[in-house]
Amino acid sequence: MKLLLNGAPVEASVTTLAELLEAQGFGGAKVATAVNGNFVPAAMRAGYALSDGDAVEVLAPMQGG
């Protein structure tokens, strides 16, 4: 399906958010996720079914003031 991952279009053969993270190189990473602007807790990723056109945000710790 076609998705937006951190603003960039990706084509992924996955069904859940957890699978997308694994496929895109985020396995085991310290990240937080949101889909279409809504926070999806880590515990819910495996059961979160993605749909064509979903916008997925994957955020990680970064420098801040």
């Binding site: 951190n6 603003g7 190189g25 985020f26 990473a29 990680a60 710790p61 970064m62 420098q63 801040g64």
Partner: peptide, 10 residues
Amino acid sequence: TVSLRRESGQ
């Protein structure tokens, strides 16, 4: 203080 920003899988 820290922040959150988009992460790259690479």
